[in-house]
Simulated assay, not measured.
Amino acid sequence: MAATTGEDPLHTTRFRAACHEAARRTPGVTFYELTEAAVTPAFHSAAMSDRVRRHRILCHPHTGFVAFASPPPFPGSGELRFHEPPRWAEVFDLHGLRVLRPEVLATPLTRVRPRELDDDARARLRRDRARTLGEWLFG
């Protein structure tokens, strides 16, 4: 998986548009808020719900990778519990983003090939203590 340097403002625009479109076109889906990436957290986050569950939707600002997780167990918690994306997650793909399934996010970092990463990403991979791709992207 190739990573790029610098945040892509197009990913922010696409993520926001996909959240709004998912709520507009899917009965029972509600879009509550969007928090743009900062130093911490280093990813965009949206709070949404459907008739089945509440979702915390994450978007990596450099790659456009999207993940669905359960809301944190308590305010301020950094714990991420990834879950299967709902059917309406296809709207993120339609906006040029890539939704990752939990099994991809659970990939051990030992299976990520560093030569496919840019210099900044390789340095971060050596520095971070993440064990899985999901922890590394959204940790």
Results as ranks from 00 to 15, higher is better:
Met1Asn: 13
Ala3Gly: 12
Ala3Gln: 10
Pro9Ile: 01
Leu10Glu: 15
Leu10Cys: 06
His11Asp: 06
Thr12Trp: 05
Thr13Asn: 08
Ala18Trp: 04
His20Gly: 14
His20Met: 09
Glu21His: 11
Ala22Thr: 02
Arg24Gln: 14
Thr26Asn: 14
Val29Trp: 00
Tyr32Ser: 11
Val39Cys: 01
Thr40Tyr: 02
Pro41Cys: 15
Ala42Ser: 15
Phe43Ser: 11
Ala46Gln: 10
Ala47Trp: 13
Ala47Asp: 06
Arg51Asn: 06
Arg51His: 07
Val52Tyr: 09
Arg54Leu: 11
His55Gly: 08
Ile57Trp: 00
Leu58Trp: 08
Leu58Ser: 07
Cys59Asn: 13
His60Glu: 14
His60Pro: 02
Thr63Trp: 03
Thr63Ser: 11
Gly64Lys: 04
Gly64Met: 00
Phe65Arg: 08
Phe65Val: 09
Phe65Lys: 07
Val66Met: 05
Val66Gly: 11
Ala67Tyr: 01
Phe68Ile: 01
Ser70Asn: 11
Ser70Arg: 10
Pro71Phe: 04
Pro71Lys: 03
Pro72Gln: 02
Pro73Ser: 04
Phe74Glu: 11
Pro75Ala: 07
Pro75Ser: 09
Glu79His: 04
His83Asp: 05
Glu84Gln: 12
Pro85Ala: 10
Pro86Asp: 09
Arg87Gln: 10
Arg87Ser: 09
Arg87Lys: 14
Arg87Ala: 13
Arg87His: 12
Trp88His: 08
Trp88Val: 02
Phe92Asp: 07
Asp93Val: 09
Leu94Lys: 10
Leu97Gln: 12
Leu97Phe: 10
Val99Ala: 02
Val99Thr: 14
Glu103Cys: 12
Val104His: 00
Val104Phe: 00
Leu105Ile: 13
Pro108Ser: 10
Leu109His: 09
Leu109Ile: 07
Thr110Pro: 03
Val112Trp: 07
Arg115Ile: 04
Glu116Trp: 07
Leu117Asn: 00
Ala121Lys: 00
Arg122Ala: 06
Ala123Arg: 15
Arg124Met: 04
Leu125Met: 10
Asp128Thr: 15
Arg129Gly: 15
Arg131Leu: 12
Arg131Asp: 02
Gly134Thr: 12
Trp136Asn: 02
Trp136Lys: 08
Phe138Leu: 05
Gly139Met: 13
Gly139Phe: 07
Gly139Glu: 03
